[in-house]
């Protein structure tokens, strides 16, 4: 799975506006809808919120990885959003979440979906990478962190 083929400037926002969990997820989803990668916004939003209900995807150090499997995408799609002030994403470590990486994958296809998530998470494991992301002004700055 090539990160390069999935992450493009069109699916990156360095200035998320929402201040709630549902708001951020909706805003991220709008990026994918605008890029014509998602067909049924309503259904995907429901799937993502359902996953959050089971267990929050806000992991540690301000990083959250909302994800879901849905019929509304044909291939794995992903987007990245930054919210410098952070919001309460019910993260496992109790901190505010600032970096959001959202992935959606088709239900019935065999593919390296979790692997993609793991690869992206591995890149932002270091404090430097996270600081670079928070300092990013453009989509290109964000992609640079992933070596793109």
């Amino acid at each position: 799975m090539k990160i390069k083929n999935i992450l493009t400037p069109a699916v990156i926002s360095t200035e998320l506006k929402s201040t709630t969990k549902e708001g951020v997820i909706g805003e991220l989803l709008d990026l994918l809808v605008a890029a014509k990668l998602v067909t049924d916004r309503q259904e995907v939003l429901a799937a993502l919120m359902e996953r959050e209900k089971k267990m929050s995807t806000g992991i540690q150090h301000g990083v959250a990885i909302p994800h879901a499997k849905t019929k509304a995408v044909k291939n794995l799609v992903a987007c990245i959003g930054i919210k410098r002030e952070g919001i309460d994403f019910e993260a496992l470590d109790g901190e505010l979440s600032q970096i959001f990486i959202m992935t959606l994958s088709p239900i019935d296809r065999v593919g390296p979906h979790v692997q993609f998530l793991a690869e992206v998470s591995t890149v932002i494991k270091t404090k430097e990478a996270r600081q670079q992301l928070l300092a990013a002004k453009t989509a290109q700055d964000v992609l640079a962190v992933f070596g793109l």
């Binding site: 089971k54 267990m55 979790v114 998470s121």
Partner: peptide, 17 residues
Amino acid sequence: NEAFVRLMMLETLVDFQ
């Protein structure tokens, strides 16, 4: 590959829940 294994286990647990 630790991150991947952890995520896989996490997703399975979520399903289990």
